[in-house]
């Protein structure tokens, strides 16, 4: 089966996986996904940057009911999402591998299966407990 990602613009690279953010030359702010301008200082001199791939859980919740469309899934089961503190920026994403989390847990960026589309397995980014 072919492998794809939900949105290629989210990634600086897929293997090894890294998220593509942007950094502001004027104030140093990092944002995700990458933007064309800086919402923190209103600067326009920004460049793409690969974000750190390790961080800590900043907040979390488990989604106990199936979200409405445009949510896509091959079959719903409760799943966790969280904010992960990567240092220069806090990124929202799936927390994979379990549904009960604690703030402060060390996690690493991974690719996680989101749904299948014909012969293609579509992946999104997520974070799992650091081995």
């Amino acid at each position: 089966m072919a492998v794809d990602v939900v949105d290629a613009t989210l990634f600086a690279s897929v293997d090894p996986v890294a998220l593509r953010g942007s950094v502001c030359a004027a104030c140093g702010a990092h944002v995700f996904p990458a933007l064309e301008s800086c919402p923190m200082c209103a600067g326009v001199d920004v460049a793409d940057v690969a974000l750190p791939t390790q961080g800590t859980v900043w907040s979390w919740t488990t989604q106990h009911f199936e979200p409405k469309a445009p949510f896509r899934t091959d079959g719903f089961a409760p799943f966790s999402i969280g904010y992960v503190d990567l240092g220069p920026v806090i990124v929202e994403g799936w927390l994979v591998g379990k549904t009960d989390w604690s703030i402060g847990e060390h996690v690493s960026l991974v690719l996680a299966k989101a749904w299948t589309d014909g012969d293609t397995v579509v992946h999104t980014f997520g974070f799992e407990v650091t081995a």
Binding site: V6, D7, P67, A69, F71, F79, Y83, E92
Partner: peptide, 18 residues
């Protein structure tokens, strides 16, 4: 982007919870 809704993160209740 569409990915945000497709991956189940565009949900107001999860925002309040987080």
């Amino acid at each position: 982007g569409e990915w945000y809704g497709a991956t189940g993160m565009m949900v107001t209740t999860s925002y309040f919870a987080l």
